[in-house]
Design a protein around this nucleic acid. Structure first.
Length: 284
DNA sequence: CTTGGGACCTGTGAGC
DNA sequence: TGCTCACAGGTCCCAA
């Protein structure tokens, strides 16, 4: 579900309710996510103050004043929703009913309630010492942030050189660049006129270089749109993202290619078990 | 080392 | 209405 833009949108929604605030209470309804929740998580979180909320690739990282960092991944179907708590002194204002897959509920001092909901339970949480967070096995192997300084044209040319896998797979490889997923790879390849089927190492360098600004553009536009909502994904206030209305190829099999002057038809194919969408007429 | 395939888990929509 | 199948924003593990 959530790729980098969706996770960044969630982070932006959580910053105002979590940063600088103390965690008042934590309830775990189901500890068996993709991996078991860390031992004693509720106790280790309770009372800690959130210093800063960061993102690395598709991971959210909450640095706590306890010296630990909470790592959260949303998997395919994970959501984080924020609700205001009942206001003291007022007529009782009930919290929204607990949802079917509300696995972890975090109450923030001052009244906000942050709920982690994940139907498929491919998401995960872990707690690590903050000074060793980057070395965490989940994070250590990640490639550069596509919106950061460590990602540029020369780097990508070098990383794709010699690769025989399709460029679709190469861009989904989180050690090459961290944060792209199935939607945005398809969108980037359409914008650059590169077929997802093309072998990564056999794309001329000038075309590889064009991928870099295209990746940055697509991600930035999607973040500005609050991400893409297909099924599960919501912003933290429950609103849908709206970048799905701007998809040029993803989930649009049979539709005419939106590229000006192109008369092709969007096609769906399967690569490594995942759908790819592209225009066979203008993507080569 | 790289690459592909299956596994993990639940929900939804299409087709019969 | 009810069943079955395909498919879904991700990642890990294992075999070739």
């Amino acid at each position: 579900m959530p790729e980098l833009p969706e996770v960044e949108t969630v982070r932006l929604g959580l910053v105002p309710v979590m940063e600088g605030r103390r965690i008042a209470a934590v309830r775990v309804n189901r500890p068996d996510l993709r991996r078991p929740l860390p031992a004693g998580m509720a106790d280790r979180l309770t009372g800690a103050r959130v210093l800063r909320l960061n993102r690395r690739s598709k991971y959210l990282l909450a640095d706590l004043d306890s010296g630990e960092t909470l790592i959260v991944h949303l998997g395919m179907s994970g959501r984080i929703l924020v609700a205001g708590a009942p206001r003291p002194g007022l007529f009782h204002h009930p919290q929204p009913a607990a949802g079917r897959h509300d696995h972890v509920v975090i109450d923030i001092e001052g009244g906000a309630r942050v709920t982690f909901n994940d139907a498929r339970r491919f998401g995960l949480m872990d707690l690590v010492a903050s000074d060793r967070a980057e070395a965490h096995p989940l994070l250590a192997g990640l490639g550069p942030e596509p919106l950061g300084n460590g990602f540029d044209e020369d780097y990508l040319v070098a990383r794709l050189a010699g690769r025989r896998s399709p460029v679709k797979a190469a861009l989904l490889d989180q050690t090459v660049v961290a944060g792209l997923g199935n939607i945005y790879v398809s969108e980037v390849l359409h914008r650059t006129g590169i077929s997802p089927l093309r072998q990564a190492g056999r794309i001329a360098a000038p075309r590889v270089r064009r991928l870099v600004p295209a990746i940055r553009e697509v991600l930035a536009e999607a973040i500005a749109a609050g991400g893409s909502s297909l099924r599960d994904y919501r912003q933290t206030d429950g609103e849908l993202g709206y970048f799905q209305h701007r998809f040029r190829v993803y989930d649009r099999a049979g539709a005419p290619c939106p590229r000006p002057g192109c008369s092709g038809t969007i096609r769906r194919t399967v690569q490594a078990g995942r759908s790819s969408f592209y225009c066979p007429a203008c993507q080569r």
